[in-house]
């Protein structure tokens, strides 16, 4: 009998297996872009921002990044928060002060600390506390400047009224690369 070369079959099989084992985050819904404080929301930012990039330059933690597709086709190259790279410093209003167009309106520190640009969501399956209760972790709670996170029965719980979406919890969450706590942006700031 003729000997069959199975290498091609093996290649296809491996290809299929990779598809089956696709990480769960591929199938999850796309996360909501978090627009910077003072912008009021997606629509206002799209309309007024001139994409000068000054806010990105001045952002001390490096959380502000220009986004290509975060706000749709009409919103190419507008600033958005990247909480993988940094977080929005609680006591800082630098981006609002430097904005020449008024897209990031300088609403002042007090109002900034009340404006909810997004809200943190906990994914318990990834949380260290859920996986192993013998190593309790409270990094998100300790880093939250707004006091919005409580550890109840060993699990982090976010209080919606207090969370301002600054992303400190997401940035410092030790679960990597896909964080157990993530900030989902508000299309209109609350």
């Amino acid at each position: 009998m003729e000997k069959i070369d199975k290498s091609r079959r093996k290649f296809f099989a491996a290809f299929l297996k990779a598809g089956l084992d696709a990480p769960e985050h591929w199938t999850r819904t796309k996360r909501q872009t978090v627009s910077p404080p003072g912008s009021g929301g997606y629509d206002r930012l799209r309309d007024i921002c001139i994409s000068c990039g000054k806010c990105v330059e001045v952002c001390g933690t490096g959380a502000l990044k220009m986004t290509v597709d975060g706000y749709g086709i009409a919103g190419v190259m507008r600033p958005s928060m990247d909480f993988g790279a940094g977080f929005c410093e609680y006591e800082c209003t630098a981006c609002m002060e430097v904005c020449p167009s008024g897209a990031l309106e300088n609403i002042g520190l007090d109002a900034k600390q009340s404006e909810q640009i997004g809200i943190a969501e906990v994914e318990l399956k990834k949380c260290i506390n859920f996986a192993d209760a013998s190593h309790p972790c409270a990094v998100c709670k300790d880093r939250c400047p707004a006091g919005a996170i409580k550890i109840i029965c060993g699990r982090p719980v976010v209080e919606a009224e207090l969370c301002i979406g600054c992303g400190a919890c997401e940035f410092f969450c030790p679960v990597s690369p896909f964080k157990a706590i993530r900030v989902e942006g508000n299309a209109v700031h609350k």
Partner: peptide, 14 residues
């Protein structure tokens, strides 16, 4: 300041 913020955020948003 933190206590004030927590109280006001709960009051104004809740």
């Amino acid at each position: 300041k933190q206590k004030r913020k927590i109280f006001l955020n709960r009051y104004n948003k809740g």
